[in-house]
């Protein structure tokens, strides 16, 4: 199928009863926010600074409400269906990775509802950033994992690949706006996607990393890597696969709520016991945990690495701590 770009606004408007989220300017940077005017969408420039995980796993989310002193607890189930438009394949893949955490053992009710009620319309990444390394992590600029529809920008129009039943439902409501894609269109899209994949110049073979990490537990590389770490939350907050959260209570007047909010393993308070003891007392342990969690523990538990190669942590780290550099150090270290 094909969607002419000038019909994009109509396409989005034709989606009935769903809130459309797309990459739009919020302050100075892109993040996924509800689209009120399709003209505000910025789907073609670089990937959003804040990944679309913020839609299914909001930074701050009310879990339940109660009145001070009362014992009646009213859970705050999220409602409404959403469509995420312009999701990059790496971020979509990240969501299916995060699913592992929220759906193992017990389902997380909030994430479950938001995730089930959202459809992902992806946009193939035709102009990857310098620090993209999705192809090394099992994805690619046109990877379809986790997406319901994949769009490829053909200039005047989008080639539209419907990937799931959810995707089909979305197209049904906008059937009139779509036209048949020719085989030339498909060929062109394929060419563009392949060109993009070839443009990704940062590469690594991570297959040996999970096995090497336990052996490097006491390695001096962690001291070296973490020496310049500031202990801020950029790498984890903006990581599409990071999912840790904190739970807090808040009161405003008579009304109280318990909410959860993103937390970061790079903060010292993250593991600080009330006694004052901290099992990860310095940035060395915290950095080591972050890498081990992504490339060792997560693999042990869920058989997949918790990294999709989106490059955000490399782009935005204030002191140029580069996850690819760390991985290559891990790969090269004598065991």
């Amino acid at each position: 199928m094909k969607l002419s770009k000038d019909k994009l606004a109509d396409f989005l408007a034709a989606i009935p009863g769903k809130t459309v989220f797309g990459p739009q300017l919020s302050g100075e940077t892109l993040r996924f926010t509800p689209v009120t005017r399709p003209g505000n969408l910025c789907p073609t420039v670089n990937n959003a600074t804040v990944p679309p995980k913020s839609v299914v796993f909001p930074q701050t989310e009310t879990m339940f409400r109660f009145e001070q002193g009362a014992t009646d607890i009213r859970t705050a189930e999220p409602s409404g269906e959403t469509v995420l438009f312009g999701v990059r394949p790496c971020d979509a893949r990240a969501m299916s990775i995060v699913d592992n955490v929220f759906f193992w053992d017990v389902d997380d009710p909030y994430y479950l509802i938001r995730r089930t009620n959202s459809a992902l319309v992806g946009l193939a990444c035709l102009d990857p950033c310098v620090n993209c390394f999705c192809t090394s992590m099992g994805g690619g600029p046109a990877s379809t994992e986790g997406l319901d529809i994949l769009l490829t920008d053909l200039g005047e129009s989008y080639l539209l690949e419907v990937l799931t039943g959810k995707g089909e439902m979305l197209c049904q409501s906008a059937e009139k706006l779509l036209s048949q894609a020719s085989s030339a269109d498909k060929e062109a899209a394929k060419m563009l996607q392949e060109k993009a994949a070839a443009q990704i110049s940062r590469q690594i073979d991570p297959s040996g990393i999970p096995a090497r990490l336990p052996a490097l537990w006491e390695s001096p590389i962690w001291e070296k890597i973490s020496a310049s770490c500031l202990g801020c939350g950029i790498c984890t907050y903006l990581c599409p696969t990071c999912h840790c959260f904190d739970m807090q209570d808040e009161t405003e007047g008579e009304e109280s709520r318990r909410y959860r909010t993103w937390d970061s393993c790079m903060f010292s308070e993250y593991t600080l016991h009330a006694s004052g003891h901290n099992p990860r007392p310095t940035r060395r342990e915290r950095t080591r945990n972050r890498i081990n969690h992504k490339f060792s523990y997560f693999v042990d538990k869920f058989k997949v690495m918790a990294c999709v190669g989106c490059g955000r942590c490399i782009n935005l780290c204030p002191v140029n701590i580069d996850i690819l550099d760390i991985l290559s150090q891990v790969g090269e270290q004598a065991l």
Binding site: G27, V50, Q59, L230, G233, Y237, W262, S264
Partner: peptide, 16 residues
């Protein structure tokens, strides 16, 4: 309001 609204509270400004 517009600027502060986009703050993600990563505390990098404080830590740096």
């Amino acid at each position: 309001r517009d600027k502060v609204n986009s703050c993600i509270r990563c505390y990098s400004c404080r830590n740096v």
